[in-house]
Design a protein around this nucleic acid. Structure first.
Lengths: 340, 340
DNA sequence: TAACCTTACGAAAACGTTTGCGTGTGGATA
DNA sequence: TATCCACACGCAAACGTTTTCGTAAGGTTA
């Protein structure tokens, strides 16, 4: 097993100093052409690659971006990561991904671990628990140590940093408007409990849309789902004997589950009930009927977040700090789950 | 902006040497109780965290596992990552994830980058292009430098290393058997071109199952799909006027697309045609009808792969190398797409 | 031939740790 | 009082780089 070759070893073999080797490999004019060629040939032969760790230590930067997301098995988040990777790789950055599993503790651990030398900055979407706890000391601390943080999707208003979000309210409004423009009058919403920020924002958008159409929102048309994993029974109970002609679901799962429930209750989508979802994932695309939905443009979010972060990382140290909040446009994708 | 505090700074403040601080923090008996307490209090106050990079350099290990997968936006791979993370975190390892995007070049770049100091070992599923090119020098080189590699799912037979796979052939056989036991006689298969190893293996399993039932396989019941992204037209043409009573699809996408096509052609699933898929992803679970499928137990694969890798990483240096191939059992999940 | 300039290279510090070993101080022992 | 031993701590090397600065050798100029 041939071990990794270092400058020192090359230097020894060639009977020159470490600095000579280092300079030769960088084509420094300080070193004679002769020596340069000799060193390079040798390095190539032994497949020399500079040790990243040593470089990081020396340069005090890792050229690595840390990404922390609530769930790794999640289509939207992976599309965001895709966008981050794209930009990062173009700019010569590596990406480390960690999942907090929606746990506050794991988020803290991951962040602290990456912050202690492994990454130069962070792109993060906070865990559900963190949103509940409203404890952001770990993020604040990271920033106060000079490491930039970009928040996306599930952001925290109180934190002063770059952010990339979609206009959840506007997206929801668009979705609801679409249903209204189709002539639907009795539009129910399947949403989350309020402490999930995006759920709340989307609910508000729905309410605004109704108001603009002079339709009074009905409490009994709003379902705030507690237990996402067992949403089917909640939705089923909710929809039982309810005379709605449209449903706006704040995520994909609620949308397809509603479709499934309606199906079981003998109602047709979109003929009897139209459905609009949120998030353009696998399910929306391939479901029968395919789902009209609001696309969040996950990849674009990732791209923008990575750019913001890298700008901060490569910007001048002491220019006055200035933080941006990028709002990505959502778009309505019309498919089969809403009647024409 | 308070910068990260180092041993040196603490030492200076407290007017002791760096080594004293280091030892005090480790509760060394060499240091007086008094000093120890003072140092620890100070360290806590300033939130001292040892610099991982420096530690990695010193210890010549990073306590990091590199995971390279062909696609990040892919349910199966993310479940595997979930399993890897679980084990890794338990054992104090960090996980770096990179996607090769199915490109050979990017796989090489990612591997080399992580191999030059960022990770101690690798868990990897090779890119499509790599399977075609049959060029594995980057993986061989990584191993020859003493970094263990565990291959999973899309493995390479020629490479001598730990592997975690499912028995694709057996899984396919189980799927086909299930259809046969339901009384289906005319079973088509939707598979991939042959260079995708898992596609080929699954096709073979399908053929074996038919043979065991004394049914002659028909060429015109086998569709090898080239362009996965546009599989719908291929499947649609294939199924046109074809009098099949069952379909075995080697992945989720083919399965739901087949269902969609059948739906458009006015055939009912499962009444007219039964469908069995492969991979238990989001789609299979939530589709209407939900899909009978072969579960690959992605998380379990990740768990096993991580364990194998960590065993190698923490094992004695010079025990005779011994490589294992773990075969994860698949299981048939019966849902609504196959009639009872 | 003395002064100077190039050329080509090496020494050493720095990044932040850990750790084996050396050492000064003070008290106990002989 | 000379010897010895704990005790408590510091020095320095090592991990692999990069880079500044110093310098020896040789050639050129006045």
């Amino acid at each position: 097993m041939k071990q990794k070759v270092t400058l020192k070893q090359i230097a020894k073999e060639l009977d020159v100093s470490i600095s000579t080797v280092s300079k030769a490999l960088k084509d420094s004019v300080e070193i004679s052409l002769d020596t340069r060629q000799k060193v390079k040939a040798f390095a190539k032969l032994y497949n020399y690659k500079p040790n990243n760790i040593a470089l990081s230590l020396k340069n005090r930067k890792t050229k690595t971006i840390g990404v922390i997301i609530p769930e790794i098995v999640h289509h939207f988040f992976t599309t965001v990561i895709g966008g981050v990777e794209k930009v990062a790789n173009e700019k010569g950055y590596n990406v480390i991904i960690c999942s907090s599993n929606n746990s506050f503790d794991k988020e803290v651990i991951n962040l602290e671990m990456l912050a202690s030398g492994s990454a130069d900055g962070f792109i993060l979407s906070v865990a559900k628990e963190t949103q509940q706890k409203k404890d952001y000391h770990h993020i604040e601390e990271t920033m106060s140590q000079g490491m930039p943080v970009v928040l996306f999707d599930r952001i925290i208003d109180e934190l002063v940093c770059d952010k990339v979000i979609i206009d959840d309210g506007k997206g929801a409004q668009t979705a609801t408007n679409h249903l209204l423009s189709l002539g639907c009058k009795k539009i129910a919403i399947l949403t989350t409990v309020d402490y999930i920020s995006v759920g709340k924002l989307r609910t508000n958008g729905y309410l605004r849309a109704l108001r603009a159409y002079d339709i009074t929102a009905r409490e009994d048309y709003i379902l705030k789902i507690e237990d996402i994993d067992n949403c089917e029974s909640e939705i089923s109970d909710f929809l039982e004997d309810k005379d709605v002609d449209a449903i706006f679901a704040v995520n994909e799962l609620f949308a397809v589950t509603a479709a499934r429930v309606l199906n079981e209750q003998g109602k047709k989508v979109p003929d009897d009930v139209s459905i609009v979802g949120f998030t353009d994932g696998i399910l929306s695309k391939h479901f029968i009927p395919s789902l009209t939905t609001i696309s969040q443009h996950g990849e674009e979010m990732g791209v923008r977040a990575a750019k913001l972060l890298i700008d901060k990382l490569e910007g001048e140290e002491d220019i006055p700090e200035e933080y941006k909040t990028v709002i990505i446009d959502t778009s309505l994708i019309q498919r089969q789950s809403t009647k024409k």
